[in-house]
Design a protein around this nucleic acid. Structure first.
Lengths: 221, 221
DNA sequence: GTCAATGTTTTTGTATACAAGAAGCGATGT
DNA sequence: ACATCGCTTCTTGTATACAAAAACATTGAC
């Protein structure tokens, strides 16, 4: 299992960023990370290079790597694109889903239901990911699935913030229900529109997002 | 201007891949590349790491980097996603374009016209890129612009193949005209649909793509 | 007390060294 | 002739070394 240290490191650091252990704007000291993970700077650098290519960290010449801190405007744009891609995945899923996709989707939906019943937002957060991944898989477009997964992952921290908003979990689950219905009915346009609406940050949710972002800003500053 | 060798290297290698100098499936020997670019293996590896994160090369443990050779199915999926994203960019551009966007778009369109008039497919290929970039910019969504640019770049080699198909340049230009019209008229849905159709590889174009891909396959094998 | 200049320290960027796995190759045995 | 085993060589993965730039601190002038 050797020859993959940088791979593990990349996942670890990415995870640290996504979970908020490394906060946006924080500088990532190579030597420090090397000590922490018990390796030399070389694989650390290689991991950081990969993360910089995916947009999670920024490498400024001679000044090291920092966790990118996207402006609220850009976070909004990311959700906007995510909404479009998920809508596309939903439309394809409606047309192409197999029996297995159907089972997986319904199973994921049920798990979400349990989370809602027990009012466990953490669990809902977790099951929600599986639900969305089931849709990506049902699209039967490997590339789209990859793109969706990557963006979904990048938006993790913000989605987590959103779930904190009162009643968001219940509303989200209700939307899931309509999405499942459209997909299983083979209603491509319906699935697209419902997923778009589910993911996009519009109306009140836009305000909520901005508020959460500036809260964090204040907490950091 | 020091501290950016790996950055330059990344662009150079990426360019080599996109232009076909490094062919799909080809192994990228670190030592060889290092000698060729007159640097040590370290920055070469860092460049390759970045390229692997963007999906252009694959790094197999202990076996080095190879230029990825996506299956025809996957290339098709990439065009499918590209069509969706460009459609989105077009829709946003229709709603948000400014006076400068309008000028840039029309200027790019005119340049394409010149290329068509002189029957210069290489030039059309070049001006076409600028035209599409003008649309991304007019969407006024920085993130969408980045995503579109990245995917557009990745699809370069295949787009080049497509232009070789008889009459494709003229048809493409005609479609451009309708796209410009829709965007400048503020017709978001029209712009979206026209761009989707322009980019997607459907009908005859699908067959052309597959044929070109397998030609290349044969040439390599 | 503030600011600038200069020297010191820290940190990045690149090269090199070294260890270990993979690939190639030849000898040997059947 | 062909497969297999072991050896050699090549290549990758990681650590370390070193040079140069940036951050930092100290000192001195005003």
């Amino acid at each position: 299992m050797t020859g993959n240290i940088f791979h593990t490191l990349r996942d670890d650091i990415e995870n640290g960023i996504v979970t908020g252990e490394f906060e946006p704007g924080e500088r990532l000291d190579e030597t420090q990370l090397a000590k922490r993970f018990g390796v030399s700077r070389t694989p650390i650098r290689e991991a950081l290079m990969q993360l910089s290519a995916t947009g999670l960290v920024e490498i400024r010449p001679r000044r090291g790597a920092v966790v990118v801190d996207p402006a609220p405007q850009r976070v909004f744009e990311m959700f906007e694109v995510m909404a479009e891609l998920e809508g596309m995945a939903g439309a394809l899923a409606a047309r192409r889903h197999t029996e297995e996709d159907r089972s997986a989707l319904m199973a994921a939906h049920d798990k979400c239901k349990e989370a809602v019943a027990s009012e466990d937002t953490d669990r809902y957060y977790y099951e929600n990911e599986i639900f969305h991944r089931a849709i990506y898989a049902a699209s039967h477009s490997g590339f789209l699935e990859d793109q969706c997964s990557a963006l979904h992952r990048r938006l993790r921290p913000y989605r987590r913030l959103q779930l904190r908003v009162r009643n968001r979990m219940k509303v989200s689950f209700k939307e899931h229900g309509e999405i499942v219905e459209a997909i299983l009915a083979g209603d491509a346009d319906g699935a697209r529109e419902r997923l778009r609406g589910h993911v996009a940050v519009q109306g009140d949710r836009f305000g909520d997002l901005i508020a959460n972002l500036s809260n964090r800003e204040r907490r950091l500053g």
